[in-house]
Structure formats: C-alpha cells, structure tokens
C-alpha cells in the first residue's frame, strides 16, 4: 500500500479506484502549482504511451481530472512527488 501526504493549503486530492484505473481529482489552490502539474501532464502526454495517464481540464477553475492506469500508479505519484505537489510518499 502506497500512501502520500500533501499540504491541504496548496491543493486537494481526491482518489478513487475505477476498474483497472485510479481516478484523481486535483484542485489546485495555490496558483503557482498549476505550472508544476502542467509539467507532469506534458511528461505523460509526450511519452510513447497514450493511455498511461490521461489529463482532463474541467471548466471549474484549476480543477483537473486524471485517469491513471493501474501499472502507472507508482510512476504518477513519484512524478507528483518529484514536482513537490505531494510532500511525502511511503509504502
């Protein structure tokens, strides 16, 4: 079981399991973190796999819906951690 912590003053993360996917809804509160999440998005959008992590921007300001394939779950969280969107990550 992989657990993570984040600063609730910066963002909120909702996560649920849907079949073979993990679905995240991330609401960025601290505006400057949007750029960091965009970097995560560009990483997955520019790699060779099209369905590993899919980003959807909703009309609601700074809210992102992200569908993460089961086998990419750890990679996705690691990248969030690398970009300091989450503060800790542990098994």
């Amino acid at each position: 079981m992989l657990t993570y912590e984040y600063n609730t003053e910066d963002l909120t993360i909702e996560e649920k399991k849907n079949g073979n996917d993990h679905e995240f809804t991330i609401l960025i509160i601290k505006e400057e973190l949007c750029e960091k999440l965009l970097e995560v998005r560009y990483f997955f959008e520019n790699n060779d796999i099209h369905t590993d992590v899919l980003f959807y921007t909703h009309n609601k300001e700074n809210e992102y819906h992200i569908i993460v394939r089961n086998d990419m779950y750890v990679s996705f969280l690691l990248l969030l951690f690398q970009h300091q969107l989450i503060q800790s990550l542990k098994w």
């Binding site: 959008e45 099209h50 369905t51 569908i67």
Partner: peptide
C-alpha cells in the same frame, strides 16, 4: 487523432 480518441473514449 489517436491520442485524443483514447482520451475521450477512456473518459
């Protein structure tokens, strides 16, 4: 078109 097709169909 393929990446956006995957994106929409997954949604």
């Amino acid at each position: 078109m393929v990446p956006v097709t995957f994106s929409i169909t997954r949604q």
